[in-house]
Simulated scan of single mutants.
Amino acid sequence: MIRKVKKIFTYPVLAGLLVLGLSLNYLAVEKVDAAYNHLVGKKWSSTSVNYDIAGGFTSDQKSMIKDTTNGWNRNCPTTFNYNLLTGNDWSVENIDSLGLTILSLNSSDNIIKAVTKIDTDPAIATSFSTSSSQYDFTSIARHEWGHWIHLYDDKTHQSTMYESLSKGEKGKLQTAEDIEACNYMY
């Protein structure tokens, strides 16, 4: 989980630093860096990663996976490219959650493979429209892409990386924290 970073300064040296002309923004960057220290090293060794979409998805679901990929590509230095037979796959399987992403790391702690499984639950939307009795496929895909860049589940309800999703809930977008973490890592 990426915790929220707050600009709280209670250090006795703060007044001295301000006299020296150092800005609060510099100190805030130090605080932000500390929040992402656990992510250092756990990233793709390349900023261009290929992926494949296996069978079992509707054409709309495949489009939604690609659309959510483009959202991460626009906001992060890492680019995910659709390319067949890569070993980095999206598939449909019977699992105990809406989505599951498994990352494989090498001895240098770099991500070398990612596999995402989306549950076969019939309540997961299979088209762009989501009813109040369905789980929003776009929100699930966007969340799982966050795991591809090694973001953790979050406790912030509005976040893409929020740990759960209710039926009928739509439009989980990337938060500033999600984008900041991605940019910090890459």
Rank of each mutant, 00 (worst) to 15 (best):
D96E: 11
F80W: 10
Y36L: 08
V49P: 00
W145A: 11
L85R: 04
G55V: 08
S139C: 04
G168L: 10
D67S: 15
S159R: 07
F128L: 09
M64Q: 06
T79Q: 15
K43V: 10
F137N: 02
K155G: 13
T47Y: 12
Y135E: 04
K43G: 00
S166V: 02
H150G: 02
Y51I: 03
E169F: 12
H147W: 07
G87W: 07
Q61L: 12
V115I: 14
A123H: 05
K62M: 15
A34V: 03
G41K: 02
I149H: 06
Y36C: 09
G171W: 14
N75G: 07
N106F: 12
Y152G: 15
S129G: 05
T78F: 15
S97C: 08
D67Y: 14
Q174I: 10
V40W: 03
S159W: 09
A141L: 06
S108M: 10
I149E: 07
I53T: 06
N81Q: 14
G71R: 14
I53W: 05
L105D: 00
L105R: 06
S59I: 11
I112N: 00
F128Q: 06
T79P: 01
K66R: 13
V115E: 09
T130E: 09
H157W: 13
L100K: 05
I112D: 00
Q158T: 15
N73P: 08
A35Q: 04
S159K: 07
N106L: 09
I95W: 01
N83Y: 14
F137E: 02
T86C: 09
S91Q: 09
D136A: 04
N37F: 05
K31F: 09
D121A: 12
F57D: 07
D67G: 08
W145C: 12
H147K: 06
Y36T: 05
G146W: 12
S45I: 11
I102D: 01
K117Y: 12
G41L: 10
I53A: 07
A28D: 11
G41I: 08
S59K: 02
T130C: 15
A35R: 01
D154V: 08
L173A: 13
K42S: 10
W72M: 13
N81G: 04
A28Q: 06
